[in-house]
């Protein structure tokens, strides 16, 4: 009996020792030396592995950023400037400030405004519906409302509003990782500069149909009437394919365009009502001035035409 115990203990100890030696040898032999800065960069990153930076994950980002040492291209949208500052400290390079972005929903066609023209009964996925047909409403550009974007969001920063059928972005949680943008087959979601004081202005419509057709499809569709473009002092609004588009780089957030839209589909976030009212009055006064000026010029031109003797 004692022999059995002895042999068991001896053989197990032997196996243990042998394994330890082999493991030690293998770990020495195949040791990979990695730049220790990679680990330090990784430590300051959010480690959400969302892929928003364009790299497969946070480790890959750390590797890439250590290798290139250039912070102007590689940027972690989730961590934003504070994290990138820390990364810069680790690498000992100058930090590059980038404006934070946020995802915006560029469709306002809620149930109320955009009537259903048929009932979709396929698998509940926007991607599948989008390859089947143009959608269950008249508008071929609008949100399909099955929430592929909500599924794609790793940060629980989105939900589908049951009353409108449109996705809603929770400002504080959105990290601009781009996942929802990639998931949307209709390109409704777009990354937009977060803006000073979280204020931003964008057109919540993508319908490129002619005005009359677009309005038939959706009561708040942009008809491309160009009133907003005319009102803009900074030429930030252009009309292309019957659709108004705001250039966020040129937009000065003056908000004077907001009430030119007869369907109120230029969205201004985090503006106080007073500010919007002020902007509206401002624009009206300016337009009044410009109109008067034009009339005066017209009158002048008219008098000039009737009195040809007047010296030029």
């Amino acid at each position: 009996m004692n022999d059995v115990v002895l042999y068991t203990v001896l053989s197990l100890t032997g196996i243990g020792l042998l394994a330890a030696v082999v493991l030690y040898y293998v770990s020495k032999k195949f040791h990979v030396t990695e730049d220790e800065r990679i680990a330090r960069v990784e430590a300051v990153l959010p480690n959400t592995n969302c892929g928003g930076c364009g790299q497969p994950g946070c480790h890959a980002f750390a590797e890439a950023v250590v290798k290139s040492g250039d912070l102007s291209v590689l940027h972690c949208p989730v961590g934003g400037n504070p994290v990138m500052k820390q990364v810069a400290e680790v690498l000992g390079v100058k930090t590059v400030e980038k404006d934070p972005y946020i995802a915006v929903v560029r469709c306002s066609g809620s149930f109320e405004y955009r009537k259903k023209t048929n009932v979709y009964d396929g698998a509940p996925s926007c991607a599948i519906a989008a390859q089947l047909y143009s959608g269950d409403t008249g508008c071929a550009y609008g949100c399909l409302g099955m929430g592929d974007c909500v599924v794609a969001c790793d940060f629980e920063a989105m939900y589908m509003d049951e009353k409108t059928g449109l996705p809603v972005i929770i400002e504080d949680k959105c990290t601009a990782c781009n996942a929802c943008v990639k998931s949307c087959p209709k390109d409704i979601l777009e990354l937009w500069p977060k803006g000073k004081k979280n204020q931003r202005i964008y057109v919540a419509c993508l319908n490129e149909e002619k005005g009359s057709t677009a309005r038939k499809e959706c009561a708040v569709a942009c008809s491309g009437c160009a009133k907003c473009a005319e009102a803009c002092r900074y030429e930030a609004i252009t009309i292309d394919h019957n659709l108004a588009a705001i250039d966020p780089d040129k937009c000065k957030l003056c908000a004077e365009c907001i009430d030119t839209c007869d369907v109120r589909n230029i969205i201004a976030t985090n503006f106080s009502p007073e500010k919007l009212l002020q902007a509206s009055e401002h624009r009206q006064k300016r337009e009044e001035r410009e109109r008067k000026k034009r009339e005066e010029e017209k009158a002048k031109a008219a008098t000039a035409a009737t009195n040809p003797e007047t010296p030029a």
Binding site: G122, A123, S125, I128, Q131
Partner: peptide
Amino acid sequence: RPILDYIRLSKT
């Protein structure tokens, strides 16, 4: 299960 729906998606 909507098998073909998803297979089409892969194909596309």
